[in-house]
Computed example of a mutant assay.
Amino acid sequence: MTDKDPRTKVTDLIKGIRTAMVTTTTSGGELHSRPLATQDVDFDGDVYFIVERDSSVVTDVAAHPRVNVAYAGDSSWVSLSGTARVLDDHAKLAELWNTFTDAWMQGGPEDPRNVLLHVSAESAEYWDSPGAKVVQLANLVKSKVTGRRVEGDSGTVEL
């Protein structure tokens, strides 16, 4: 376990991972995951994505607003559980729009087809393995030799 505040730990882990897998429930009850780029990296329990109004994620959230947002980095993972909603906030959309978004979305922030998907996270779980890949490999070998588990950091945070 770390001495760092758990919310700060989650923030730091998310900031290092650009794309999240957002899982929704379809109208037929199936789980559907898709990659979305996180737009707001100052994590305070709220995460924003820019999506198209006629996309499946918008349809799914309208029927079933409970979602999971999963981040996977080289040596860390975060799973957020929360409630999503679609926002028609043109000022926030313009604020979050960037060159990366421009490469994937058409029409810019003024286009009425582009909206925000706002996820209000209620809890987060995280796992963090120490060090770079070389350190992780060394820890794996050490674990096999000593019979002890690889050391890491994990926790659950209520938001």
Rank of each mutant, 00 (worst) to 15 (best):
S55T: 13
T8S: 13
R7V: 12
K4M: 12
A70W: 01
P6T: 13
S55H: 11
K9S: 09
V135E: 09
T24K: 02
L93W: 03
L159H: 00
S79Q: 07
R18S: 12
F49Y: 12
S27Q: 07
D74Y: 03
R7E: 11
T26A: 09
E95A: 10
A103Y: 06
K133E: 07
A121D: 08
W127R: 02
R53L: 12
D54W: 01
V119C: 09
V47I: 15
F100G: 06
F100P: 01
F49T: 08
S143A: 11
P109R: 14
T11V: 12
A20C: 08
F43N: 03
A70H: 02
V145A: 13
H64V: 01
V119R: 00
K92I: 06
R7L: 09
A37W: 01
N139D: 14
E52S: 14
V78P: 00
V47D: 08
G152V: 06
R34Q: 13
N114P: 09
T146K: 03
Y126Q: 04
D12G: 05
D88F: 02
D74M: 10
N139G: 06
G152N: 06
L117E: 03
V86C: 06
D60N: 15
H64W: 02
V119G: 00
V58W: 00
T59L: 03
G29I: 10
G29K: 08
A84T: 04
A124L: 03
P112I: 14
E110N: 13
Y71I: 14
V22C: 08
S33Q: 02
V22R: 00
N98F: 04
V51L: 09
V41P: 05
D88S: 07
W77K: 03
W97L: 11
D3C: 05
Y71P: 03
Y48F: 13
V141F: 07
V145H: 06
Y71H: 06
T101S: 15
G29V: 14
V115M: 01
S56P: 06
R7F: 07
D5N: 11
F100H: 09
D3I: 09
S33R: 01
P109K: 14
A124T: 06
A94N: 07
R85K: 15
R149E: 15
L87W: 04
Y48H: 11
V134I: 12
V78Q: 01
S33A: 14
L159F: 08
K142W: 07
S27I: 07
D89I: 11
D44H: 08
S120E: 15
D102T: 13
A37N: 11
N114T: 15
